[in-house]
Simulated scan of single mutants.
Amino acid sequence: MLKRWLAVPALLMTFAAATQAAECPDLLQGSLPKLRAKESIDLCQRFAGKPLVVVNTASFCGFAPQFKGLEALYQRYKGQGLEVIGVPSNDFKQESKDGEETAKVCYVNYGVTFTMTEPQKVRGDDATHLFKNLAEQSSAPKWNFYKYVVDRQGKVIADFSSLTKPDDPQFLKAVEQALASKPE
């Protein structure tokens, strides 16, 4: 009898994990290593049900000053649930091969407090799952600082080129639309 009672919590945990996986959008399946940390970010656990801005970054790109605008955006809307995910990439040959240098640019030079990952592939067959899914829903990044606005269900509302600054009215409109989206 005791064995049966011990099996109940295990079954409940299995059911809870299956339910969580079912609720997690495909976009957020998997994890990414956090920049200059010994931890990985479980995308589903951390971001499911939240509006997102996902941007591929590069430390040595002429658009790097957009880090300041992205941080200002994050500070402005984080109280409403917005999350910003910065994913450094060397796909366009403008990112350091040294994560420590990337971290210095993000954290020290620009004061970034939003989530940053270790450098990842964001284009082509080797792209991380997150960016493969973004590309399937809209298009692959055409350059560094390509921005995606994602609603609470994991659907891309809009994507914006590197030329679009984080305070652009159309970009802000898409962010506010993502904030207004209801969780499933």
Rank of each mutant, 00 (worst) to 15 (best):
A174I: 12
Y148M: 14
L43T: 02
E23F: 15
L35T: 10
P33M: 01
R152N: 02
E184T: 10
E71N: 03
E100Y: 03
W143C: 10
A174N: 13
P25K: 09
A17I: 10
E100I: 01
L172K: 12
D42E: 14
A17C: 01
V112E: 08
Q75W: 06
T164R: 13
P9V: 10
D91M: 00
D151H: 07
M13V: 15
L163Y: 12
A64E: 07
F60H: 10
P65V: 03
M1I: 03
A64G: 10
K38S: 15
P183M: 00
D126M: 14
F47P: 12
Q20S: 09
Q80M: 08
I41C: 01
P169S: 04
D151Q: 02
G30K: 01
G111H: 12
R123L: 09
P169N: 02
Y107S: 14
R152D: 01
V122D: 03
M1C: 08
K93N: 09
D125Q: 10
E83R: 13
S162H: 12
S139Y: 02
S31H: 05
V8G: 13
P166F: 00
D168F: 11
I41M: 07
Q120S: 11
A72E: 14
Q80W: 07
A48W: 04
K68A: 15
V8N: 00
K165S: 02
A64R: 15
L35V: 12
N109S: 15
L73F: 02
A178T: 11
A158L: 06
F171Q: 04
S162N: 11
P51C: 02
A72N: 09
F47I: 13
Q137R: 11
L12R: 05
K132T: 08
V150K: 08
P166G: 02
V149A: 07
M116C: 07
A10W: 00
G49C: 06
E101S: 03
Q153M: 05
S139K: 15
E101Q: 15
G154P: 02
L73W: 06
V108Y: 08
D168I: 09
G154C: 09
Q170F: 08
Q66L: 06
Q20L: 10
Q66D: 03
Q137T: 07
A103L: 11
L32K: 04
V156Q: 04
T117H: 11
D98L: 07
V156T: 08
Y74W: 13
F60W: 01
G62S: 14
E176A: 04
P65W: 10
F60V: 00
V150F: 09
G86F: 04
I157D: 06
R123D: 02
A178P: 00
V175M: 11
A10E: 09
D151S: 04
K3L: 14
Y77R: 11
L11K: 00
V105L: 12
K3C: 02
L163Q: 06
S59W: 10
G99I: 13
Q29N: 06
F47W: 09
V112P: 13
P141R: 05
M1R: 07
P183D: 03
S89I: 01
S96T: 03
L12V: 15
V105H: 14
V122K: 08
A21C: 01
Y148G: 09
K68E: 12
Q45F: 05
G99T: 15
K142V: 15
P88W: 01
K38F: 12
Y74K: 08
F145R: 11
I41L: 05
E39Y: 04
P9C: 08
Q177F: 02
N90Q: 07
C61Q: 09
